[in-house]
């Protein structure tokens, strides 16, 4: 018999009525949940609201949790984002016309900046903004998979749980998402920028 994970212990304590235990789970996963919402919705305020609602929903359905907490929670978060996008027909609020300086100052993206060069910092900020916008241009199912895989670092198995799809579908969606993203990156001439950044780093 395997020892219960820290998540399982916190879930059990929350089910026994310890509210603080659930809030420990919230603190542990709020960045991931918010990150997924932000990448999917492209709006910091909406992302915070949806992530908050997802945690409330998770608490409501906590007694029905079977298995691991993290993929279960991320499934709730992904579904909440999908519901919002479908019901509101929300358009991405981050556009290519957004002032990069505003993006830099946004609390939604707190970049751990280790680059002393301001020009390089701006280039990176522009790069990240372009990638965020590119993500919003691919279909929702593909976007969800590529965010979970390449940004959140989830395994195919976990993504299958989160999306409710089988692993073959996950791989197929991931392939299509990356192919589409690559096309967007090429069109935006992103790769030369990245190569220049890499060259600068090497020198």
């Amino acid at each position: 018999m395997t020892a219960p994970s820290e998540d399982q212990i916190l879930v059990s304590a929350a089910l026994a009525g310890d509210n603080d235990s659930f809030n420990q789970l919230v603190e542990r996963y709020q960045n991931r949940a918010y990150g997924l919402c932000f990448r999917m919705l492209g709006d910091a305020d909406a992302a915070a609201d949806v992530a908050q609602d997802a945690f409330i929903s998770a608490y409501r359905h906590l007694p029905s949790l079977r298995g691991e907490f993290r993929p279960w929670l991320m499934r709730i978060v992904a579904n909440a984002c999908r519901d919002v996008l479908r019901s509101n027909k929300r358009h991405p609020s981050v556009s290519l016309d957004t002032n990069p300086r505003d993006e830099d100052e946004s609390p939604a993206l707190q970049i751990a900046d280790t680059t002393p060069n301001p020009e390089e910092h701006l280039m990176r900020a522009e790069l990240h903004r372009t990638i965020s916008v590119a993500l919003l241009q691919i279909p929702l199912d593909q976007r969800t998979v590529v965010i979970l895989s390449d940004i959140e670092g989830m395994s195919y198995d976990e993504i299958a749980v989160v999306t409710g799809a089988n692993i073959g579908t996950v791989k197929s969606r991931l392939n299509r998402a990356r192919a589409r993203l690559r096309e967007i990156f090429v069109a935006a001439e992103l790769f030369p920028t990245v190569r220049r950044l890499i060259a600068d780093e090497e020198t």
Partner: peptide, 8 residues
């Protein structure tokens, strides 16, 4: 990609 953190 930089980690996204909620403002609250």
């Amino acid at each position: 990609m930089p980690a996204a953190r909620p403002a609250r």
